[in-house]
């Protein structure tokens, strides 16, 4: 139980994939102009990361060392295909909005990185929890960025109008530069806070 808590803290804060390891930012930037898209993307990633780590960990004793990368990619692709088909069947409009970025979960370095670094060396149930924790950390960052971008860019949250009609939308926030600035600022804040933490700890 204690281990579960440590893993979650690592995924959400101490070792957050986007903020700390700068992994998987391609999709982090691309889908964050709307809260809804970010949430779906995040849930998809949690699913794929958790189950890929589980599978990689389950078969880790039987995987030959030199082809393990290929095996991992194939496992990840299989789960991504599941997510893609599910979205197409039940949420066709979101599937169109996300476009190729669902498929790009395959090349999202977070999953490969965790499979390689964590699932290869740990038993299945811990690897599964680690996948959920890392995915959740990723989703939280996604939602934070999307919150600011959608609020300032459209004046809405999850499509519901929050700011009054007099609000003039900052269209720059919806465009690519807004995403770069937001992520840059977010990393800035997190680094500074972490620095303070370490100084307090000393």
């Amino acid at each position: 139980m204690k281990q579960t808590k440590t893993i979650f803290l690592e995924g959400l804060w101490g070792n957050n994939p986007i903020a700390r390891q700068i992994l998987g930012i391609c999709s982090a930037l691309a889908v964050t102009n709307l809260m809804k898209n970010s949430l779906v993307m995040g849930l998809g990633l949690i699913f794929v990361t958790a189950f890929s780590e589980l599978t990689v960990s389950l078969i880790r004793q039987w995987t030959p060392k030199h082809i393990r990368m290929m095996v991992q990619v194939l496992i990840i692709s299989a789960y991504v295909i599941l997510v893609d088909i599910f979205l197409k069947a039940y949420f066709p409009d979101i599937s169109t909005a996300l476009g190729p970025y669902v498929g790009l979960i395959i090349t999202n370095c977070i999953i490969m990185g965790r499979c390689e670094a964590f699932a290869q060396a740990n038993p299945p149930h811990i690897a599964f929890i680690d996948g959920i924790a890392m995915g959740t950390g990723y989703t939280l960052v996604l939602l934070t960025i999307a919150f600011v971008r959608e609020l300032l860019g459209f004046g809405t949250l999850f499509g519901i109008r929050i700011l009054g009609d007099s609000w003039v939308s900052w269209s720059i926030m919806i465009m690519p530069p807004g995403a770069f600035f937001m992520l840059g600022i977010l990393i800035w804040i997190l680094h500074t806070v972490k620095k303070k933490d370490q100084e307090v700890a000393k």
Binding site: I22, F180, F181, G184, I185, I187, W188, H191, T192, K195
Partner: peptide, 11 residues
């Protein structure tokens, strides 16, 4: 200081 590295690259 906090912006060094990846932060400033993104900006």
């Amino acid at each position: 200081e906090g912006l060094q590295g990846s932060g400033i690259t993104l900006i």
